[in-house]
Amino acid sequence: MTPLMKGFDSEVFDSQAVFRHLLDAMAYPGNITGTGITLACPDRIHPGTGALLLTLMDFETPFWTDLAPDSSEVQWLKFHTGAPVTFDPFDAAFALITDTSPAIDLNRFNPGTVISPDRSTTLVIQTHGMAEGNHLRLTGPGIPSQTGLTFTGIAPDFWEHRTRINQAGPTGIDMLFVHKDRFCALPRTTQTEIS
């Protein structure tokens, strides 16, 4: 077995730096940003993903991923966060999808309840690429009028599915999209339209 890779250089300051970028991303949906730190991650985990999950997860956050539970990636995440791995995505506070080629079934994740819409799964999706663009038009809180994004590797019907999951509100699934060391956020309130 290969030795376990290290995590943050400084738990205090790296996680704070990443969180501030994440706070900005969540507050201004569609803004693509870096994480503010450098972090080497195991193969199938993008540096952006690693930074976000190490910042957010701990023993209180059940975690689901499409990676094998015994993979070095999952071992690394478990070691550095203490998050318990769950086999039911509905129980997950955080879920990581590394492979977007199979259709993503959003019904498997927890949208919270009308009384506790915060008890929902936050989804982290690794993409093949993303850029500011006009493929996907975004409106909603955090966006002055509208903004646009272009994703590579995400099926068009994913966006319709996402709309259906979130339209009832206040329940829904908040999503973070990562490509390499950059990411953006689409909380449940962000409405998308394909142009």
């Binding site: 969180f19 910042t55 915060d118």
Partner: peptide
């Protein structure tokens, strides 16, 4: 004492709550 008093686990918990709060405005 820790940087900004709170321990890292407490900060994590609060940070998660902040993100949910932004995702569900006013809740």
């Amino acid at each position: 004492y820790n940087f900004a008093y709170l321990d890292e686990q407490s900060k994590k918990m609060i940070r998660r709550a902040i993100l949910k709060a932004l995702a569900i405005p006013g809740f």
